[in-house]
Simulated assay, not measured.
Amino acid sequence: MTWQPRLKIIGLTISCIILVAGLVVSLTAVRKPQRALPVAASYSGGAILSVSSPTSSVYTNQEFSLTVNLNTQTHKVTAAAVYLTFPSANLEVKSATIAAFLPTPLIPPQIVPGSVSFTLGSGSTPKSGTGPLVILTFKALRSQSAPVLVDFNPQTQVAGIDPTGKPISESILDAKTGATVTIKDYLPGDLNHDGKVDIFDYNPLVADFGKTGTPGFVPADIDKNGKIDIFDYNILVANFGKIQ
């Protein structure tokens, strides 16, 4: 064999080795995990997030609103990624309305059982001061003896800039406060849900008397057995005059 064919074989072998080495390096780079944005446990003097609590108790099947608020304190905020959790057996989010403080929806509200999340931006001008981010409409599903907590998930972050206008490379969230909701059942026999059992509850029971359906299909099905009968009337009479 002459030297020329041998040189071609050697050159081809070296090229294959280089190609394989390149593939190994590329695969290693692809598999390397991405580093998450550093999140400070508490950024002193940074932003504060809070959820307004209802002024009074709510009742099963009642809808009510909670507002997520942002206080930027000494900083200017460019965006907020908010994650809220709550017990899905007790509460359901019916809607989420973006307020004016951070008006740009980078990720619109995502509603699933037990949580709601959204990411909002300030637009072209960073915001300072205090204002509402989102108004959440909840429905109370089930009562319990202890208050129900609507709280921020640890993923919640706030982005901002320093006094020179330079972006800060970590979350500037200083503190976050959730809300507590006390859910009660209506008085048995309070069919119009006005907090008392009186003649105005008697009227809808008479109007629905004899009807059948799924358990609890109308308020007059007080014992929730799927029919309006003398046993519902009996409960109303027993509670007549009571005030919640």
Score class of each variant (00 low, 15 high):
Y233A: 15
D190E: 05
V197R: 08
I9G: 00
F209D: 08
S52T: 05
S115K: 13
K127A: 09
D208I: 02
Q4E: 07
S171H: 03
S143G: 12
F152S: 10
G121L: 03
G165C: 14
V237F: 08
A238I: 06
I168C: 09
P204N: 10
V116L: 14
Q144K: 11
T55Y: 05
T214N: 14
G226Y: 00
F240L: 09
N69Q: 06
G226M: 04
K166G: 07
D198H: 10
I183M: 08
N239E: 05
L7E: 12
V93D: 01
V197Y: 15
D185M: 04
Q4Y: 12
F240I: 02
L7C: 10
V197L: 06
D198E: 08
S95M: 05
S53K: 14
P219V: 05
I168S: 08
K139E: 14
L84R: 04
V181F: 06
F209P: 01
L141I: 03
I199A: 15
R6W: 09
I9H: 11
P105A: 04
D151V: 10
F101T: 02
L136W: 00
V24M: 10
L141P: 07
A47S: 15
V68R: 01
F138K: 02
L37I: 04
I10L: 15
S122Q: 04
S56N: 12
N90M: 03
T2F: 14
L187A: 09
A29H: 00
L23V: 11
L205K: 12
G189P: 06
S171P: 12
I235C: 06
N69Y: 13
